[in-house]
């Protein structure tokens, strides 16, 4: 059954695109990217987290980001509280590419003045949380610059990654995580708010809005081991 489906997709590639070999190229590319990512067994990094969500007013936070293969990922704020968007954990790139999947080459695009190859990943597991991911890959450096993930439960996420010092490990200096949120309203009768008389523009708000969380990484400690306790 599973094989049949893969085979079907493969066929589909052939039909739509005469240059069917690209499908194979896409898989290769993904494997290469994955291999680059696989150099990192674990890491911990200091980061500055900025949250930009219409209904949250949160100060910039110092966080620690922990990762360990295969899919342990945790953002911790030891000095305070950080609200971490759901999905931010499952967007860990290794997570996207774990298990079996079909990679489809969607051609090239230009993002930030840079030519990138667009690859769609279809997980083999029908019942997995991730329905579809789209990767924008810098073929030269084997780095994912952007990933768009559609999940079953939590809508669509987008991650933009900007690389610098740690590009060799495929670890970004900065990531921007964009996600959909519902508008927030305090349950009625909880509190009397102070009305300072300033006009608030409540009519124009759309129920569905975008939220952004940005993490700027300062230091990575790569492959030095991360204790279990930090993921709980």
């Amino acid at each position: 059954m599973q094989t049949l489906k893969l085979y079907g997709l493969y066929l589909f590639c052939l039909l739509i695109r005469p240059e069917a070999a690209f499908c194979q190229d896409a898989t290769d590319l993904v494997q290469k990217v994955k291999a680059k990512l696989d150099q990192v067994n674990d890491y911990q990094a200091d980061g500055t987290m900025k949250t930009n969500v219409s209904f949250l007013k949160v100060p910039q936070a110092q966080v620690k980001v922990y990762f360990r293969k295969p899919d342990n990922f945790r953002i911790r704020n030891d000095q305070g509280i950080s609200l971490v968007p759901k999905g931010a954990v499952s967007i860990s790139l290794n997570n996207l590419m774990k298990g079996r999947f079909t990679a489809l080459d969607m051609g090239t695009e230009t993002a930030d003045g840079q030519k990138v190859r667009v690859i769609k990943l279809l997980p083999a597991d029908d019942n997995g949380e991730i329905v579809l991911s789209t990767l924008y890959v810098d073929e030269g450096r084997l780095l994912i610059l952007k990933a768009r993930t559609t999940t079953r439960e939590s809508g669509t996420y987008e991650v933009d990654m900007y690389y610098g010092k740690y590009a060799a490990y495929a670890l970004p200096d900065r990531i921007v995580f964009t996600f959909n949120t519902k508008d927030y309203k305090l349950p009625k009768g909880i509190t009397f708010d102070y009305d300072d008389g300033s006009r608030k523009n409540t009519e124009n708000k759309v129920a569905e809005t975008k939220g952004r969380v940005e993490i700027i990484y300062h230091d990575y400690l790569i492959n030095k081991g991360v204790p279990d306790a930090l993921f709980h």
Partner: peptide
């Protein structure tokens, strides 16, 4: 003690501890 998160009518405020 920790950071404080309080709910307003249409926004949540977080204040560093």
């Amino acid at each position: 003690t920790n950071d404080m998160i309080i709910a307003r009518n249409d926004v949540m405020e977080q204040i560093g501890r």
